[in-house]
Write a protein that binds this DNA or RNA. Structure first.
Length: 289
DNA sequence: CTCCAGAGGC
DNA sequence: GCCTCCGGAG
């Protein structure tokens, strides 16, 4: 296999975007919060929310000492608000298990709520400089094309970690840069829709290009329609409660004109299950604890 | 419409 | 393996 690491690392040195979490001394807590926010959410939408969070909660103990309700409020419109609850729980776990210090060990990170294969390794690598494969949707697409010669990656799986691990240089610091560089290439050059192969530092070694850009089919799942979905109903309930006071509102005044009353009730039940709201008799509110 | 620095439950 | 979970940008 041709060496992809050297040209990718060289390209990254001069083409990386200037993002807050890449600044030296940003800190493991900042990296952790940014990675939670970046799960399925674009960089441009994360940056302002991240700044607000870190000014209000500069360390895990500060977040853990505040209420889940405030975490959900400041999460605002980032989407997937369970992440705000999980991050609040993770902050309490860090306080209780790790003396308030974001752990460095991947297994310890994986044991925190809301942290999976991607986020655990992203923290260990980008905050602490250790050597692990970090695989996100960008990395999966770059490997699918450059290495496997396919237009799109298959379903995510364990093999993705092994594939990235095989590309990592032995040196910890260089491996960390390659992880970041591969993600960056996928985000800015080897994009899903219109890849800019003319600007690609590994075009000469790309298996997909060498094969003539075959359309290898697309075995990805299609995402469900949002309009009319339970997710839309849940989002509407939470928006209503974020705007309400700490005491919440009467349950029968939540989305009174929602077209499907069963769907509205289902949204309330599943939000309560997720710990995103408290159903307290005739009242509903964001969770105080 | 698709895509996005995924995770967790089953 | 399968599915759900948000919301904005392109």
């Amino acid at each position: 296999m041709p060496d992809l690491a050297t040209p990718l690392i060289g390209w990254y040195r001069t083409n990386a975007r200037d993002l807050p979490w890449r600044h030296p001394g940003f800190g493991a807590w900042g990296v952790l919060v940014s990675e939670f926010m970046l799960q399925q959410t674009q960089v441009s939408r994360v940056i302002p929310r991240l700044d607000e969070w870190l000014r209000r909660w500069p360390d895990p103990a500060a977040l853990a000492a505040d209420s889940p309700a405030e975490a959900v409020r400041l999460w605002a419109n980032l989407g997937y608000p369970r992440r705000a609850i999980w991050l609040h729980r993770a902050a309490a776990q860090i306080r209780d298990r790790h003396d308030g210090v974001v752990p460095r060990d991947v297994e310890a990170l994986l044991a925190l709520s809301g942290i999976g294969d991607y986020t655990a390794r992203a923290v260990a690598v980008f905050a602490y400089g250790d050597r692990h494969p970090v695989v996100d949707t960008n990395t999966r697409r770059v490997i699918a094309r450059a290495v496997a010669g396919r237009a799109q990656p298959g379903p995510p799986g364990r093999r993705d970690l092994a594939a990235m691990d095989a590309l990592l240089p032995p040196d910890d610091a260089e491996a960390a840069v390659l992880n970041a560089a591969t993600m960056e290439l996928g985000a800015t050059v080897c994009t899903a829709r219109a890849p800019k192969c003319d600007a690609c530092p590994i075009a000469h070694a790309c298996a997909w290009r060498a094969a003539g850009y075959p359309d290898t089919g697309d075995d990805r799942r299609r995402q469900a329609r949002y309009e009319g979905s339970d997710r839309q109903a849940r989002g509407a309930v939470l928006r209503r409660l974020r705007d309400a006071g700490a005491d919440g509102i009467r349950t029968d005044t939540v989305l009174p004109d929602w077209p499907d009353s069963h769907q509205r009730d289902r949204a309330l039940a599943t939000l309560a299950d997720d710990g995103l709201i408290d159903l307290d008799g005739a009242f509903v509110r964001l969770p105080r604890a």
